[in-house]
Amino acid sequence: MPFLELDALSKHYGPVKAVDDVSLSVEQGEFISLLGPSGCGKTTTLQMIAGFVDATAGRIRLQGRDITHAPANTRGLGIVFQSYALFPHMTVADNVAFGLEMQKVDRAERARRVEQALALVHLDAHAGRYPRELSGGQRQRVALARAIVIRPPLLLLDEPLSNLDAKLREAMQFELRTIQQQVGTTTIMVTHDQAEAFSVSDRVVVMQSGRITQIDTPYEVYEHPASEFISRFVGKTNLLPPATANGPQRHIRPEKLTLKPAGQGRSDATVVDRFFLGSQWLYHLESPLGPMVVVQVNDGSPAHAPGTVVALDWDDATLRTLPEGSR
């Protein structure tokens, strides 16, 4: 029996199918990401699990219990909101203690667990502060502590890192994953950021127009996307002409292409532009196969200047064909 099971879950607003026939099984301790562009139904799905949106059809089962229409305040789930949703008129410690107070945990035990949760997110020194006195990253961690202190069976994260700046976001990704592994809570995260989904999740659920289009490990989603849409959503891709007259389209990722001296590859190409990304060079090339994007590791050797003629080469094993009509 799966830990959490979504069974043909749907949410319709009039004729609009915000979530359409979503089925998903989550194992205990798993970290799952719902990934997709805005409006794909990922947030609505999360809100149905949380109990803030009532499902039109389908079932939600948690540990075998049907919670499809259970009120939100009886589900006992830990939720981290995009806006953090901290209680502005309470101190950090009171914010974290709120859930325990609702569970009527006695005062001494409450204080002990609040302290523990704040230590876990490295905020023990800020217990007496008010949310407005904290930085974005600190608020984020208070929200996380408040959600996990009640020891929920399931942790729901709604775009938890989208309000942080890039550097902090990356640091928090790792911290989030570390904390999740320490406490072992089954987690579902909603995000539109593929890098975020890939770096922390065990499995990624790709959603598009209210439906699930792929469920796989991050590596598989990137290497074997189920459609051209997914392929482009999770990374850059180059289209190669079919090998045979009626053959399928072939795709290759920019980092799988290599640049060689002119005439020594499968096709010559001219460098149109190059972008320095620090650890990598990003080239835009023009070739008889069409426009190409290539990413090369910055290994210290000089970059190819625009106008240079080079040769493209690749390993056939890295070519991907996508199912017909998979857009």
Binding site: N73, L77, I79, A85, F98, M102, I150
Partner: peptide, 24 residues
């Protein structure tokens, strides 16, 4: 979502109003 947060932590609607909405 602040009220949603309080709800998810197990507060009743009345408690949400008294402890969260009204002070805010």
């Amino acid at each position: 979502s602040v009220e949603h947060a309080a709800l998810s932590l197990g507060a009743s609607r009345l408690t949400v109003f008294r402890r969260i909405t009204l002070p805010m």
